[in-house]
Computed example of a mutant assay.
Amino acid sequence: MDKLKMPIIIGLIVLIIASLTGYYYYTHNTKTSEIIIFAAGSLKIPLDEIASKYSEKYGVNIYIEASGSVEAIRKVTDLGREADIIAVADYRLIPTFLVPNYTSWYIGFATNQVVLVYTDKSKYHEILENNPSEWYKILMRNDVKWGFSDPNKDPCGYRSVGIIGLASIYYNDTSILENLLLNKTNIAVEKVNDTLNLIVPADLKVSENSNLIIRSKSVDLISLVEAGTIDYAFEYQSVAVQHHLKYIKLPDQINLGNPKYAYFYGKVIVKILVGTDKEKSIAMSPIIYGITVLDNAPHRSEALKFLKFLLGNTGREIFEEKGQPYLDEFIVYGKIPEELRSIAGSES
């Protein structure tokens, strides 16, 4: 055989083998679809478990990127990144930032409450356990380090700020607001009639040598608490349960977990991203998680199937187990896709 033709023949053989190998992989690899989810950090653990069960059953790769809820949304609105599903820790963020340009519907589906987490290494935890109502006095102590997430990025952050404002009203003690927020950050306050407005600048700063620690999302504080770097942190009850952390419940009047006190919660409004065109005013209200599939979702059909699975019995059981019970009736806004109507109901 002509020696000049030999390399060509070998090359053709390699190409044929590679093509056949690729075809075999394509036809035998069941995971040819995918779903992209941008989610609140506090949803990561239950979503991971549901995604695992869905992937095992239907052979779909599910990519979950966790962050603060506001940050998750801004990945789409500001950075132009593609996603199929947006799942946030405050369902009101969807109409605030995504409707009507990115989606026309959403579903409020699960609840939670804010607690104060700690460990046996936390300073004064014995006092806290014996007298839970002393929580804010303990946080005021100079040798106690504590934290919450960034209000401009994460709902747990602006809820933590709101809870401190509500506590100052509930306990009738303005020093709570002054000592826990105003003296430690550049957050400002203004009172309008019976409403307390807490103003969070986009360039939120913590005072030098402060015992307050702020991180991008609430779950980022968990490792700091576990390591004893900080003593206490405001977290969702579900996060405390999932990470096996000790916690105390705050009074129902301020923990944002009891719909009975919705009117009282509304006495505090947190303004975030102040000084930018993204500025928003968020009235405190009972915690409800929200979810939607974006109009331009690259894998829209598969995403809707996954959402139906999530809202069904399997998802409900997993969320219950993780400390985030589903609502008795979902909150439905807009004309939701036909695939979800049997399980989600109609518009509220």
Rank of each mutant, 00 (worst) to 15 (best):
Y265L: 03
E320R: 15
M284K: 05
A297T: 10
D194K: 06
T185P: 04
S285Q: 06
V270I: 13
N313L: 11
I318R: 00
N313R: 11
R316N: 10
L250P: 00
V192C: 04
M284A: 11
Y261G: 00
K191T: 11
V239L: 03
I199H: 04
G323E: 14
N209F: 04
K267Y: 09
K217G: 06
L256R: 05
K267A: 09
V274T: 12
K217A: 09
V274E: 14
S238R: 01
G228I: 14
N193I: 07
K267R: 11
D277Q: 12
I291W: 00
I187E: 05
L256W: 05
I214K: 07
S301Q: 14
R300N: 09
L256K: 06
S210Q: 12
K184D: 08
G323P: 00
A188W: 09
Y326V: 02
S210A: 15
N197H: 15
K305M: 12
D252V: 05
D220G: 06
E279A: 11
N313V: 10
T292K: 05
A303G: 04
A240S: 12
D194I: 01
P201W: 13
K249A: 06
E235S: 03
L307M: 15
I287P: 00
G275T: 08
S210F: 15
E190I: 01
K246F: 11
Y263P: 10
E235W: 04
Q237W: 04
V206K: 10
G323V: 02
L224T: 05
G228L: 10
I287S: 01
A233F: 15
A283G: 11
K271V: 02
S281E: 13
G323H: 07
I288F: 00
V189F: 09
E321T: 12
L198K: 05
D194Q: 13
I288T: 15
D194H: 12
E279N: 08
K184I: 07
F309R: 04
V189A: 12
N197F: 14
E190D: 09
V206Y: 06
Y289R: 10
A303V: 11
K260I: 02
L212V: 13
I214P: 01
G323N: 08
D194P: 01
N258G: 14
S238F: 03
D252N: 15
L204F: 06
I248S: 00
K305W: 03
L311P: 00
K267E: 09
S238C: 04
I288P: 00
I187T: 02
Y247S: 01
N193V: 03
I272H: 02
K246Y: 11
S218C: 13
Y265E: 08
E226Q: 11
S216G: 13
K205M: 10
K217V: 10
L310V: 02
Y289I: 08
G275C: 07
D203K: 13
N255Q: 07
E208Y: 09
I318H: 01
P325S: 05
V268P: 03
T195P: 02
N313W: 00
T195G: 05
D328M: 13
K322C: 14
E279W: 08
A188K: 13
Y263F: 07
R316T: 13
L294N: 04
Y261I: 03
R316P: 00
K305A: 14
Y247M: 09
A233C: 11
K191D: 01
K308S: 12
S210K: 15
I222A: 08
D295L: 07
